[in-house]
Design a protein around this nucleic acid. Structure first.
Lengths: 364, 364
DNA sequence: ATGGTGTGCAACATCGATTGTGCAAACTCC
DNA sequence: GGAGTTTGCACAATCGATGTTGCACACCAT
């Protein structure tokens, strides 16, 4: 019991009266190929089991230069990324490998350093989620010959899976404008009689695409879009609070519709909104491009777009495993359509291009 | 450029006209101890740099039997655990090691298997958060001589850091009962004129302690506690919805106070609460033993207890690094006291034993 | 008996870094 | 100038598992 720990194949070999190589073959399953008698293999496996042997994975990885580690780099542990991480973990473990999840805090240097680190661990594959500097990272991986894939933030040099932000934004905008109709029974032409886009970062493709989708639909519905309606200035919660507060001042009240880009912005905006009287809130149609369960339970209805994290991750694995060339695959999000009265949501998956028909259609 | 990759110290040695051992010493910083001339060391480091050398960590780990990996096992990626993970990551990287975060889905077998896996990776230390079967895991780690520590769920056999659930619950209960007074201007003696405890799992110490704290304060305030007031039946969201719905039926309305144990239960309860008219909600004082930012922004005030994840993790590191014997260290949570009118919260740290004074006191 | 074909396993080199040991050359000191 | 010390580095063993090679033996057919 209190003997020195850490059995090795040599210990087992000794106890089994066999050679280390035989033990190795027996234990790693290659014994059939290596023409070890079944009896021998079973005997060795038995001994290993009751000796509590477990292989030294460093040694194995050193020898085989495959570590069985698969890593995921993400910016932070928010709801969306955490969901991604969860799904990722499951998928990796289903493949009998070990998931490693690292947050790099949106710091490009941290990202580079982490990739370098992981390279030294002969990581088997690498997932980048919401990465800050995709191209550079891809080159780094290519140099180290590490298969990799990008999720949520596309990369020109590697397979990528992203949400169809443009279409999602279009549909969310459509839904917001419908609610506006219902709430107002018609729409005037004042500066408040339109939808404002709040939050995001225009240097990121996802924000750009959402703005594009927003714009598409605004032009389709209202015939025009004043650039001043797009306040894609920040993902920061506190700044968002300020932005909407300023907007409120400027307009002399809430606009009739708000397109809120991400849950952090949502939270920031809510800090301000919570101070407003009920009837003002109920005169505005809200949409959030992110899913936040509590959003369904506020004192006013909020439509929400939810990215399909499971699908995103699964497609990413598919691309990785099929050794895909650099392509960008788009996944349609779901919309949580808020009942205006109940605050209860109806979940509706979205088909590609569905918005263009002017209708949200359920898939068959 | 397109040559075979993966430089080794042998390659560098060749190019530097030195021996591999000299290169090794130069690169890993031990060159001073090994009496390598500074000039030589610098020359080698220079060459390594522009050759893009990076050490094979498997080889190093195999030789030194220290991997530089520190792992965290947690049940799932919810808000609390994700925060823990975030803090953990930072702390580990601050120590120049590599954080590994794995979720085991509340499955004891998964936990055991994962620990076994990590053992094989010669992990340097192991953090268990909210583990299901602490004692068994501790024994496993002891056998493998892996330093380890428990967070949030205590273990009798290893150092543990947990939130002072009992005191937190006491204070939350106190806060709820205060709100009740304010809302009702006095409290009757009907079955609804009291606080109900909703959610949790009595097989877990945390729930037991929270129930104990709840009970302490109820007896202090009301003189008695009917066991039927404690519905610590589940952490499951859907079950929680059902439980509160049943309670509502049974009592013919909401009780005057609700102690909600965890955010998942909160979310479940809200699904039901969202269907109630405003005045019923405003006649009930809510408290949640978990922090959920959106909770501050509902149409009724909710007091919340927030565990100090940063402190929990930091104390855990402290215990680990001081090679602590099995002790259980308690960390006081914070309370987010909801303004009854505004829904805005006041954050108040809690001192140990503060509740017993009948007052919540700020630390000095 | 002889050669040919399988079968079952052991020997040994190897992955890349670390580290104890040894040994020249340079440098002291009397 | 010879003994002793220091400086600077190379050699070689080692961590534990893998996989190629090769050898001994058994079995079969001619």
């Amino acid at each position: 019991m209190t003997e020195k720990n850490k059995k090795t194949i040599y210990d087992i070999a000794l106890r089994a009266g066999a050679s280390p190589s035989t033990v190795s073959a027996a234990l790693n399953g290659t014994w059939k190929k290596r023409r070890i008698a079944q009896a021998t293999a079973e005997r060795i496996i038995g001994i290993a089991n009751d000796d509590g042997y477990s292989a030294n994975l460093q040694a194995r990885a050193l020898r085989t230069s495959r570590s069985g580690l698969v890593a995921l780099l993400m910016p932070e542990y928010n709801r969306f990324f955490s969901n991604i991480a969860q799904t990722f973990s499951r998928e990796v473990r289903a493949r009998n490998q070990c998931p490693i999840i690292i947050s790099t805090e949106r710091n490009p240097d941290e990202e580079r350093a982490t990739v370098a680190d992981l390279t030294s661990w002969s990581i088997d594959a690498l997932f980048f989620v919401g990465s800050v500097a995709p191209e550079e990272l891809s080159l780094q991986c290519q140099a180290a010959e590490i298969p990799h894939v990008f999720v949520d933030q596309p990369c020109a040099l590697a397979p990528s899976v992203i949400t169809d932000n443009r279409n999602g934004a279009r549909i969310l905008t459509q839904e917001i404008s419908r609610s506006m109709m219902r709430l107002a029974g018609g729409i005037g032409t004042g500066p408040r009689d339109t939808i404002y886009f709040l939050g995001g970062d225009r240097s990121l493709p996802s924000t750009r695409n959402r703005v594009a989708g927003f714009s598409d639909e605004m032009i389709a519905q209202f015939g025009r879009l004043d650039p001043g309606q797009v306040l894609a200035t920040t993902y920061d919660m506190d700044v968002a609070t300020q932005t909407i507060s300023d907007l409120y001042e400027r307009l002399g009240g809430l606009p009739r519709g708000l397109f809120i880009n991400s849950d952090s912005v949502f939270e920031g905006a809510l800090r301000f909104l919570a101070t407003l009287p009920e009837d003002e809130l109920n005169a505005c149609a809200f949409g959030c491009f992110d899913y936040e369960p509590f959003g369904q339970l506020l004192r006013f209805p909020v439509h929400m777009i939810r990215q399909r994290h499971k699908m995103l991750v699964q497609r990413a694995f598919a691309l990785l495993e099929s050794n895909s060339p650099p392509v960008i695959e788009q996944v349609q999000p779901e919309i949580y359509r808020a009942g205006v009265m109940t605050g209860q949501a109806t979940v509706v998956p979205i088909r590609p291009g569905a918005a263009s028909s002017g209708e949200i259609t359920n898939p068959v």
